[in-house]
Amino acid sequence: MCSACGFPALAGHWSDAGVSSPGDKMRIRFTRLAIVNRLLKPYRLAAHDDGATPGFQLLAPDGARVMVKNLEELWKEAGRIAGTAVDPLSARALGDE
């Protein structure tokens, strides 16, 4: 509960909705990480989730690591490192170039 307004606190980013039980949360974490990594691969990036802290670690090709809080931050930071937006509908992501 949020002490200011008495409503349940936001789970975080909108993408984190719909999963409140800790068991479900653990299960989906790895499914989601696999999708994130499939999307990052064409941009030579990868993400890591230690299973303990919220958010992800983004791994750049030069070995640099950046902590991001949620998916939106992850895509923005990945786009910044790659020099182009991580776009699931683009020819690059779909392997058409």
Binding site: G18, T31, I35, L71, W75, V86, D87, P88, L89, S90
Partner: peptide, 18 residues
């Protein structure tokens, strides 16, 4: 597919780019 947990990962990337 795997419902919201999977779809929202993809959608968040699509909306950030588009």
């Amino acid at each position: 597919g795997g419902g919201w947990a999977s779809f929202s990962v993809w959608l968040s990337a699509v909306l950030t780019a588009r």
